[in-house]
């Protein structure tokens, strides 16, 4: 609840602000609307998957952004949670007759439970060791997906369930899932935006900046890291279930180490901490991996890796760097303080 209130408050604050920021926000709004309408205007039959995939990879970016961008934890096994969402949906749909709507919360819940189980031993180690440990877990989930045939269908994966319907409208073609994926992306973006400015978000930011100082200020570092891990993996669980429903197939090949690396790349490329940035990162990834690779083949991998390296070297904060607002004083004591707060060009 707090999260929703906080995100609404942030939106309100955004719309109230004046000056040069408005043009930017109008621009972001226009881009969002254009993105939402694009497949219908441009014709979704050309690359029917690409639009839905953009929204799903945007969601992956937004979710992983909580872990990397907010809390500063490098997770190289994020797609494990995507896999859990996908397999939970596939099992529920195939063997238990559940619909997508009933499965989505279950997939999210199991992804969170898994992240807690994985996070508990993992988050005690710090920095680069954490990255390696998450890589290890991602690897184990991949091999489990290949080997536990009873629940994963092994190498061939799971398929052949009934398509979901909503008010009698069936979801069959990938484009049918686009509004759904877009809605998920929007919810993920708004909720994580709220999280970022909440008490939790500030705790993460302080852990990211200086773990020792955060611990000294009374922040339970491991507990808060675990929250970041759990609140980040929810979105992978949800996106994974949608992805499985859209593809009507879930197989281990979607959850390789490469996929987890690409998820990290999406966040770093877009801009760690910046929600618009990571969505852009997700869109860019899909454009390069799916659209460009149709023309260039495997060369698209080289292009993507080179782009990531270039961004890391030239623009380490990402394409859309996250610039936190300076903290606002609750009640400006003097006119000077009020001017300082608003940048001096406009009164409150």
């Amino acid at each position: 609840m707090n999260v929703i209130v906080a995100s609404l408050r942030e939106l309100e604050a955004l719309s109230r602000r004046t000056g040069s920021g408005r043009g930017l926000r109008v621009g972001v709004g226009v881009i969002c609307v254009a993105f939402a309408l694009a497949p219908y205007v441009l014709g979704g039959s050309y690359y029917p998957d690409i639009w839905t995939d953009m929204a799903l990879w945007g969601t992956i970016g937004v979710g992983l952004n909580v872990v990397i961008g907010f809390a500063g934890l490098l997770d190289l096994g994020y797609m494990a949670f995507y896999a859990i969402g996908g397999y939970v949906f596939a099992n529920a749909a195939l063997y238990h007759g559940f619909t997508l709507w009933e499965t989505l919360p279950l997939g999210a819940l199991l992804a969170v439970v898994a992240s807690a189980i994985i996070g508990f031993p993992t988050l005690r180690v710090r920095g680069d060791y954490l990255a390696i440990m998450t890589l290890g877990f991602g690897g184990i989930v991949y091999y489990a997906a290949q080997n536990l045939s009873a629940i994963t269908g092994g190498y061939n994966g799971l398929y052949g369930w009934h398509n979901p319907t909503l008010f009698g409208h069936p979801f069959i073609a990938p484009i049918d899932f686009y509004p759904l994926a877009l809605a998920l992306l929007l919810v993920a973006a708004l909720v994580t935006m709220g999280l970022r400015s909440s008490r939790l978000g500030r705790a993460w930011a302080s852990i990211k900046d200086d773990e020792l100082a955060a611990a000294s200020s009374g922040i339970g570092v491991i507990r808060y890291k675990l929250y970041a891990y759990m609140l980040g993996s929810v979105w992978a669980g949800l996106a994974g279930a949608l992805f499985a429903a859209k593809d009507q197939l879930v197989s281990p090949e979607s959850f390789t180490f490469n996929a987890s690396f690409f998820a990290v790349a999406v966040v770093v490329l877009g801009g760690m901490g910046s929600i618009a940035g990571v969505v852009l990162g997700g869109v860019l990834y899909v454009v390069i991996a799916e659209w460009l690779s149709a023309y260039t083949g495997t060369l698209s991998g080289v292009i993507f890796a080179a782009l990531l390296l270039l961004v890391v070297l030239v623009r380490p904060a990402g394409l859309v760097p996250y610039r936190p607002k300076p903290p606002r004083l609750r009640r400006p004591a003097t006119r000077a303080a009020a001017d300082l707060e608003t940048g001096g060009d406009s009164g409150p």
Partner: peptide, 23 residues
Amino acid sequence: APPLTPLVSSLAVFFLVISIIQV
């Protein structure tokens, strides 16, 4: 740079080299 940046950079190099070999 902050410690995670070179780590990401090394991952990028890893994929760059492997992708080039693949191509």
